[in-house]
């Protein structure tokens, strides 16, 4: 029993960067722009957070700067996809390469340095609940912030005018345009805000999970987040579910490794990726059967007014 709680605590920790990334992807894609470059953005966020924390010794500043740096880098993606109407998938790959390269280049001299890990902050009362308490309410502040983001994004997307407009951008930008909403403004907003969240997800690695910097710190988790957006059906609550499911898979894998079971660690490392493929396949099959697509209808399509006449 205690063993499960320990794994679950780790699952939340491992799942949190995925959650931020998935939420960022949800916002971007609800607005109609795919962000395939999450891996690169997470790395930019991670490196920025690490550098800022190293120099200013402030976790808060580290998070803010990570968000800003990732937001800035995503802006390139936004310009290329929205204003210049290029292929979003190719641009996302460019973003992944660019972000990975950027973090590798500027992080090269930082390998070997360490920062302190973010402390857990038990919430009085709630953290005393058996099992649930230690799992969900004896975590660090970034985890609590991710809970807040889930609820906030859900509320904005489905209960407000802003959310209606965002969702409409992903469904039918031409309709929005004819009604006088600025497609450019909303899509830029979604991509950049989404990118900032992804950057925060990246920041979680050096600030909580590792405390140090190595090249390619996120090790493919960004790509798992890309898949999780589909798994979550572009919905923040399901994003939470998916992120923790995969967090659990990663935590379990680490747990098995430390228990000294005679499976080579290389096979355990494959596990989250294989699981992602299996789950993605199941979700796709189920979706095919249902026949209704929940994918934003205009996802991946560039918009240009006056194409038709």
């Amino acid at each position: 029993m205690e063993w499960i709680v320990l794994v679950m605590i780790a699952a939340i920790k491992m799942g949190t960067p995925l959650l931020f990334g998935t939420l960022g992807g949800v916002i971007s894609e609800r607005g109609g722009v795919i962000n395939l470059g999450m891996e690169g953005l997470m790395l930019v966020g991670a490196l920025t957070a690490f550098v800022v924390d190293l120099n200013l010794n402030s976790k808060f500043a580290a998070m803010v700067f990570a968000a800003m740096a990732a937001g800035l880098v995503t802006t390139i993606h936004a310009i290329v996809c929205i204003s210049l109407r290029a292929n979003q998938i190719a641009s996302g790959l460019a973003l992944a390469l660019f972000g990975g390269g950027l973090s590798g280049l500027f992080g090269d001299s930082l390998v070997g340095k360490t920062v302190e890990s973010l402390n857990n902050l038990p919430i009085p009362g709630l953290s005393a609940i058996p099992a649930i308490g230690p799992i969900f309410f004896n975590q660090d502040i970034m985890v609590y912030f991710s809970y807040f983001c889930v609820v906030l994004i859900w509320f904005i997307l489905f209960k407000t005018t802003l959310g209606l407009n965002i969702r409409s951008m992903g469904e039918a930008p031409d309709v929005c345009d004819a009604l006088g909403l600025s497609v450019f403004r909303y899509r830029y907003g979604c991509v950049i805000v989404g990118g900032m969240l992804i950057g925060i997800g990246g920041a979680y690695f050096p600030l909580v999970l590792t405390s140090f910097w190595v090249d390619n710190l996120t090790a493919g988790r960004g790509w798992i987040a890309v898949a999780l957006v589909i798994f979550a059906f572009w919905h923040p609550f399901k994003a939470l579910l998916g992120a923790y499911l995969f967090g659990a898979a990663i935590a379990l894998q680490l747990r098995v490794q430390t228990m000294g079971i005679a499976i080579p660690s290389y096979f355990l490392e494959m596990f989250p990726y294989i699981l992602t493929i299996v789950v993605l396949t199941m979700v796709t099959i189920r979706n095919n059967k249902r026949g209704v697509s929940v994918m934003p209808a205009a996802l991946g399509l560039a918009f240009f007014r006056g194409e038709k006449h």
């Binding site: 290329v80 460019a94 390469l97 660019f98 390269g101 090269d108």
Partner: peptide, 23 residues
């Protein structure tokens, strides 16, 4: 003694630039 990441960065820049020019 620049890291290999320089190449990836450069690849990203090229791809962005070519994509952005296609219009």
């Amino acid at each position: 003694s620049l890291p290999i990441a320089m190449i990836y960065l450069f690849e990203g820049i090229i791809l962005f630039s070519v994509l952005g020019s296609e219009i």
